[in-house]
Lab assay of single mutants.
Amino acid sequence: MQRVNMIMAESPGLITICLLGYLLSAECTVFLDHENANKILNRPKRYNSGKLEEFVQGNLERECMEEKCSFEEAREVFENTERTTEFWKQYVDGDQCESNPCLNGGSCKDDINSYECWCPFGFEGKNCELDVTCNIKNGRCEQFCKNSADNKVVCSCTEGYRLAENQKSCEPAVPFPCGRVSVSQTSKLTRAETVFPDVDYVNSTEAETILDNITQSTQSFNDFTRVVGGEDAKPGQFPWQVVLNGKVDAFCGGSIVNEKWIVTAAHCVETGVKITVVAGEHNIEETEHTEQKRNVIRIIPHHNYNAAINKYNHDIALLELDEPLVLNSYVTPICIADKEYTNIFLKFGSGYVSGWGRVFHKGRSALVLQYLRVPLVDRATCLRSTKFTIYNNMFCAGFHEGGRDSCQGDSGGPHVTEVEGTSFLTGIISWGEECAMKGKYGIYTKVSRYVNWIKEKTKLT
């Protein structure tokens, strides 16, 4: 034993070699072989497995989906700052455009905790909710729209109204504003409101030439003092309507412009014939205590009207009353817009006519005020429907199939267009061939041609 100890002390290297040989010859039971080890760690190889990531292109799944990435790591994937920024906006807080917040056709661009709407022409605001041009839906104005110097929408209202708090709607500024039905039992019968379409306001006024200088022999019209197929109006439903009495009662109609003036057809009036105007009328054979009678003290036909040349060209006249009318729910003026808007309103496509005229061709006159909704007829169809001249200051309205029309005794009465609950004068009943005849239409004086003249002559002093 002493000898062994001496050998170990003198030859430590020998001992180490012996131990190493023993270990190498022993069977290893701690580690699995290569094949079995792979069965336990069965993990798919990654895209760049075996390579240094710093030297390969980034992978979106590896960089940002398996674990949260930084902007720089995302930049490695896209290799483009702009594309990385677009991805980053949604990656950080989701897609803010998912709810489609942009209105009126706006395009949404996502941002971090926010979004941006790219608005089409005519709109602005956070969600493109603000109209900035009158060309689109009248700028959301209830009545009139004008573009300011910086191309912003400025709404306005006709006389007797003021802008509401929203700067879009119009509200009454006087007790009985024009064009409004205020009798409670008839307010439910107000005709369907007309909503502004998209309009090209630059070209809204037709490029028409008034044929002022045409000389033409007097034409022989049949029954051209021209509501057939209409309905009984309720008291106060058309408070701007008046009836004219002269040699015979209810020979023509008219509309209240203001307390002192009536507008009617020029062919209705004769110099030297006494005319009485009755406002607030409903049943011409009954006294309903809503009527107001006034005498006409002055007749002003349009300066281009000449019955000797043509009885229905420039067929418009103004009547001055001896005493002002007292405005109330049964006696209310009709609204008159400017030339541009009167023309736009007419193009809405349908209007209402009213009167006490004959209820059928050569038949009896109506006792109760009649009204009828009539569609506008395109000019080409209008011209083809008659052998008589249709001037540019006239328009056609009615039904091709016949059966409904204005008729004798309705002449001078109103053709009105309702705009968001307020009625505007767009025409004056003038003439036609018979009444409600198939293929024939009622012919009306186009008020847009005469609004400046009306307003100039009827100013209240």
Results as ranks from 00 to 15, higher is better:
residue 424 F to Y: 12
residue 227 V to E: 12
residue 187 S to C: 05
residue 221 F to W: 08
residue 155 C to R: 00
residue 275 I to H: 03
residue 12 P to T: 13
residue 270 E to R: 04
residue 299 I to A: 08
residue 302 H to A: 03
residue 178 C to S: 01
residue 70 S to L: 09
residue 323 E to H: 06
residue 207 A to D: 08
residue 69 C to I: 03
residue 44 P to H: 08
residue 423 S to W: 14
residue 399 F to S: 13
residue 16 T to Q: 06
residue 269 V to C: 07
residue 191 R to K: 12
residue 432 G to L: 03
residue 60 L to E: 11
residue 282 H to D: 03
residue 411 S to P: 08
residue 140 R to Q: 15
residue 272 G to T: 02
residue 40 I to Q: 15
residue 184 S to V: 12
residue 6 M to G: 14
residue 360 F to S: 10
residue 314 H to K: 02
residue 127 N to W: 09
residue 109 K to Y: 05
residue 420 E to L: 11
residue 200 D to P: 09
residue 376 L to W: 05
residue 174 V to S: 08
residue 411 S to V: 14
residue 224 F to L: 12
residue 379 R to Y: 14
residue 34 H to G: 08
residue 218 T to P: 14
residue 338 D to T: 14
residue 273 V to D: 02
residue 445 T to N: 04
residue 252 C to T: 01
residue 237 Q to L: 09
residue 163 L to G: 01
residue 299 I to D: 02
residue 375 P to I: 12
residue 448 S to H: 10
residue 8 M to V: 08
residue 41 L to P: 10
residue 233 A to H: 05
residue 354 S to R: 08
residue 329 S to W: 05
residue 104 N to Q: 06
residue 95 D to T: 15
residue 46 R to I: 12
residue 274 K to P: 02
residue 84 T to D: 05
residue 129 E to W: 02
residue 95 D to N: 15
residue 303 H to V: 07
residue 430 S to T: 10
residue 98 E to Q: 13
residue 86 E to L: 15
residue 141 C to S: 00
residue 250 A to L: 07
residue 448 S to K: 02
residue 155 C to L: 00
residue 384 R to C: 03
residue 86 E to T: 14
residue 120 P to M: 06
residue 277 V to C: 03
residue 204 S to E: 10
residue 55 F to I: 13
residue 57 Q to I: 11
residue 24 L to G: 03
residue 337 A to F: 01
residue 67 E to W: 04
residue 254 G to S: 01
residue 220 S to A: 11
residue 144 F to C: 00
residue 267 H to C: 03
residue 94 G to V: 09
residue 452 N to D: 15
residue 36 N to T: 09
residue 200 D to I: 11
residue 79 E to H: 15
residue 193 E to Y: 14
residue 306 N to P: 02
residue 322 D to H: 03
residue 210 I to V: 11
residue 427 G to M: 00
residue 438 K to Y: 08
residue 333 P to H: 02
residue 140 R to P: 15
residue 219 Q to R: 07
residue 446 K to R: 07
residue 144 F to A: 00
residue 69 C to D: 04
residue 22 Y to H: 06
residue 304 N to R: 14
residue 149 A to M: 09
residue 127 N to T: 12
residue 185 Q to G: 12
residue 79 E to D: 15
residue 57 Q to H: 10
residue 180 R to F: 04
residue 269 V to N: 00
residue 52 L to V: 07
residue 137 K to R: 13
residue 77 V to R: 14
residue 378 D to T: 05
residue 204 S to D: 11
residue 169 S to A: 14
residue 409 G to M: 11
residue 423 S to K: 12
residue 66 E to G: 08
residue 137 K to W: 05
residue 339 K to I: 07
residue 365 S to N: 10
residue 101 P to R: 05
residue 432 G to S: 10
residue 147 N to G: 14
residue 34 H to E: 08
residue 4 V to F: 15
residue 178 C to F: 00
residue 177 P to Q: 01
residue 302 H to Y: 14
residue 344 I to M: 09
residue 332 T to E: 03
residue 83 R to D: 10
residue 148 S to G: 07
residue 181 V to L: 08
residue 385 S to M: 11
residue 434 E to Y: 10
residue 434 E to C: 14
residue 268 C to N: 00
residue 154 V to Y: 11
residue 275 I to T: 05
residue 409 G to H: 14
residue 435 C to S: 04
residue 357 G to F: 11
residue 430 S to P: 04
residue 414 P to L: 12
residue 282 H to A: 09
residue 265 A to P: 04
residue 16 T to R: 09
residue 441 Y to N: 03
residue 221 F to D: 13
residue 131 D to V: 05
residue 383 L to M: 08
residue 75 R to N: 14
residue 267 H to G: 04
residue 129 E to C: 02
residue 137 K to P: 10
residue 59 N to R: 09
residue 348 F to E: 13
